[in-house]
């Protein structure tokens, strides 16, 4: 049993089934990656875990069933989500973006803010700038930062490297590893399977809404069948 577990998830968009009994899970201090071809339901798994997509099956957080809870309640229990697109509030300053992350908290969030600034020094530098004026990579950092402000135990990342340049990709992966080091459970969906699996502790290969392969990142990378079918050689 992992810290966050989705077990036997079923979901559909209208009459079209999109998840057909897939299972994922991640522990704290661990990075798990969901890969697979387009339309396999990767992002839908995230949405199901967050309660954004009505689904059947079990969602467990630290052993407790949270599948009946609303998105907001799950957020307050420590889940945080970094969407792929539109992941900042563009007309608000960087610091305001981070403050919105702490919206549900009633304690003093200054320490968390400092932590975010230590992790992403550029955000401290640009804290008065509007998030909409930042570069793609910087916006991604704002999005990570905002997610961290909720003091999550679990971070769900939806294709954090989509549409950014290779240099920025390295930067983003470094950020993700930093989050993992900070004892968060990190679950991400990734197009860039090769690179993602190489840093992941755990990998889930999804095909047509079901788990095709599950294993450690290294094992999946060295599995011939996985390499041939999903990693292009």
């Amino acid at each position: 049993m992992t810290y966050l577990t989705g077990k036997n998830l079923f979901a559909a968009y209208g009459a079209v089934p999109i998840l057909r009994g897939c299972s994922v899970g991640v522990n704290r201090g661990e990075l798990a990656v969901i890969v697979g071809p387009n339309g396999a339901g990767k992002s839908s798994v995230m949405k199901a875990l967050l309660g954004l997509l009505p689904s059947k099956g079990e969602v467990l957080l630290n052993g407790k069933d949270i599948s009946a809870l609303s998105t907001q309640q799950r957020i307050s229990l420590g889940l945080a989500f970094v969407p792929q697109n539109n992941n900042v509030f563009p007309t608000m300053s960087v610091v305001e973006n981070l403050e919105i992350g702490a919206f549900l908290r009633h304690d003093d969030y200054q320490t968390t803010l400092d932590e975010v600034y230590t992790l992403f020094p550029i955000l401290f530098e640009k804290r008065r700038q509007l998030a909409g004026q930042l570069s793609g990579g910087q916006r991604q950092q704002v999005a990570f930062g905002r997610a961290m402000m909720t003091q999550p135990t679990v971070l769900l990342l939806d294709e954090p490297t989509a549409g950014v340049s290779p240099i920025v990709i390295d930067e983003i992966f470094a950020n993700i590893l930093a989050l993992k080091e900070a004892n968060k459970a990190v679950l991400m969906v990734e197009q860039n399977a090769q690179q993602a699996l190489s840093i992941a502790d755990k990998g889930f290969v999804l095909v047509a809404g079901k788990n095709a392969h599950t294993g450690t990142g290294k094992a999946l990378l060295s599995d011939d069948k996985v390499r041939r079918d999903f990693l292009g050689g």
């Binding site: 967050l50 998105t71 907001q72 957020i75 307050s76 945080a80 989500f81 969407p83 539109n86 992941n87 900042v88 509030f89 563009p90 007309t91 608000m92 305001e96 403050e99 919105i100 992350g101 919206f103 549900l104 905002r146 909720t150």
Partner: peptide, 18 residues
């Protein structure tokens, strides 16, 4: 600020617990 966030990006506002 929550109102502004909601106006800027409704989905993200909901994901922030607004």
């Amino acid at each position: 600020k929550a109102m502004r966030a909601f106006s800027d990006n409704e989905d993200l506002a909901l994901l922030s617990g607004i």
